[in-house]
Amino acid sequence: MVHAPATMADVARIARVSTATVSHYLNKTRRLLPDTENRVRDAIEELDYILDPAARTLRAGSSNVIGLAMSAVSNPYFSALAQELESLLSEHGKSILLMDTHDNTQREQQVVQELIARRVDGLVLAPSASADQAVRLAERYQIPLTLVDRFEPEHECDQAAVKSSDALAVLTGHLLELGHTRIGMITGERGLPTTEERIEGFVAAHRQAGLEVDEKLMISGQSTRAGGYAAADQLLRRRSRPTALVSGNNAMTIGTLRLLKERGVRVPADVAFVCFDDFEWADLFEPGLTAVAQPIRALAETTVDLLLTRIADDQTGIRRVQLEPTIMHRTSCGCLPGTPLGVE
């Protein structure tokens, strides 16, 4: 059920102060006692109050602006996705307002609040590991919302994502077929749907081969370059180090490749390497990277279609669309490249 957005009077009632005091707090026009400030701040957080209530759907006109909330600065994949979204939305007369969530739940909530206050017509959100508050804000203020990249079945909103589990199972299975039995996985931030799906594929491939996964060979790279570097370093320092590595996203891949170069570890002679997220320049590496290529353009097209349909008619049924990736078979896995592998 959609609740009416909170008002300044609601905040004043919960905080046990006057509306003038709430106004002073919000506009920084008068210093308040610490206890009063705390009560007002707590009430604002409890009610998800946003200063500009005109942002709700009852506003008179359209801003023709779409808010994008994702970790676009720190993640090359999201940067590419944001570019495609901007290009497609501009064809429909829409501008974008991009804000980086840094995959942080609290920052994500602040970003969504800011975008709503700026009267965007709709929101595209790449959800964090716990996006409940952000989604609830969009629902409360009746802002059309589409989740992208990370599939969240529990949320009743339009969603577009790429299947991860099967592709990671194929990549891992390929390494197992090549004779690797000690495969290290550099996982993304735990709790993210994409991270859990890719771990699921990694584990499934081992089970299909009749092998148990050594959980000590699964290290979180926190979905970042620095995290990928640290995780790869930790794996390669093991007494019985893995003979192959799987990286869960392109940011961690960059960090891993840097570590391998600094340590003088040859790919694939010393360690085989495969990764999720293809690069525009992945084939220029020596060796070329065997990688899962996500259909970024198709994902952006699907996302735009879902969101603009929702903006035009908020009574349209909820749609959840999952797209298939492609595996680009190159040489970093340790064998000759062939025709790009399909997801089995």
Rank of each mutant, 00 (worst) to 15 (best):
L217H: 00
L217W: 01
M218F: 03
M218T: 13
I219C: 15
I219L: 15
G221E: 03
G221K: 11
Q222I: 12
S223F: 05
S223T: 14
T224P: 08
A226M: 11
G227R: 00
G228R: 07
A231M: 06
A232F: 00
A232I: 00
R237I: 06
R238Q: 15
S240A: 15
R241Y: 02
T243S: 15
G248N: 05
N249I: 06
A251Q: 02
A251M: 09
M252Y: 06
T256G: 05
T256F: 12
R258C: 10
R258I: 13
R258G: 04
L259D: 06
L260I: 03
K261E: 12
E262S: 05
G264D: 03
V265F: 11
R266V: 07
V267H: 04
P268S: 11
D270H: 03
V271M: 08
V271T: 08
A272Q: 00
F273Q: 03
F273H: 06
F273L: 12
F276W: 07
D277G: 04
D277A: 10
E280P: 03
E280W: 09
E280A: 15
E280Q: 14
W281A: 13
A282Q: 05
A282F: 05
L284Q: 10
F285L: 14
F285C: 11
E286K: 12
G288P: 08
G288M: 09
T290Q: 05
T290D: 02
A291N: 02
A291C: 10
A293K: 10
A293N: 11
A293T: 04
P295I: 06
I296D: 01
R297W: 07
R297P: 06
R297T: 12
A298T: 13
L299T: 02
L299D: 04
A300H: 03
A300S: 05
T302R: 11
V304Y: 04
T309D: 13
I311K: 07
D314I: 04
D314G: 11
G317L: 14
G317C: 11
G317R: 13
R319T: 02
R320V: 01
V321N: 06
Q322K: 14
Q322Y: 09
E324F: 10
P325Y: 12
P325R: 07
T326W: 08
T326L: 06
T326V: 12
M328Q: 15
R330F: 14
G334P: 00
G334K: 02
L336E: 15
